[in-house]
């Protein structure tokens, strides 16, 4: 989740709050937010996840002129050889942890630097062998101050789970 420049913008915060179904005025109404304890619009607790928008290497965003694994004419845009297992579509999010050092406000410009953490394996009941991979991302503001520390654990499953 690396990003050189992640501008925190009021419109983006409002849309993020819409998407998580949070009608709290502190995310969209500057006038109402000015009367709250933080004293202005702030970002919701999981907002830094949207730094993916500013990550040039985000593999979960279709890129112009490049194959995309979602459907078009075919069910997937990635051609694979007979019998080949690319593991596509079985990477899942296992854990997410945030430590908050201060509130994020419109006007902040963050940088995100991600470091790889531990890796481990486990036998899953529903989805076969599970391979876990941890990463730690530090979000710093325009003054180089640490504002959010994020620890993410991803898992690659052997097979899809049933509903």
């Amino acid at each position: 989740m690396a990003a050189d420049k992640f501008p925190v913008e009021a419109g983006h915060i409002m849309l993020f709050a819409h998407a998580i179904g949070d009608a709290n005025p502190i995310y969209h109404d500057a006038e109402a937010a000015s009367k709250t304890e933080p004293g202005g619009v702030i970002a919701p607790p999981t907002f830094v996840q949207a730094s993916a928008q500013f990550n040039p290497d985000n593999t979960m965003r279709p890129k112009i002129g490049q194959p995309w694994f979602g459907s078009g004419k075919e069910a997937t845009g990635i051609k694979k050889k007979e019998g080949e297992d690319t593991g596509s579509g079985r990477g899942l999010h296992a854990e997410q942890h945030y430590e908050y050092h201060r509130n994020l406000e419109p006007g902040d410009v963050l940088t995100a630097i991600t470091k790889e953490g531990k890796t481990w394996e486990k036998e899953g009941r529903r989805s076969g062998k599970l391979k876990f991979r941890e990463s730690i991302t530090e979000y710093r503001d325009q003054n180089g101050e640490l504002v959010v520390t994020a620890r993410s654990v991803g898992v690659q499953t052997e097979r899809a789970v049933e509903q």
Partner: peptide
């Protein structure tokens, strides 16, 4: 909505 705002467009 969440895909669009977060940038996670995983199909």
């Amino acid at each position: 909505q969440y895909a669009g705002v977060s940038g996670d467009y995983n199909p």
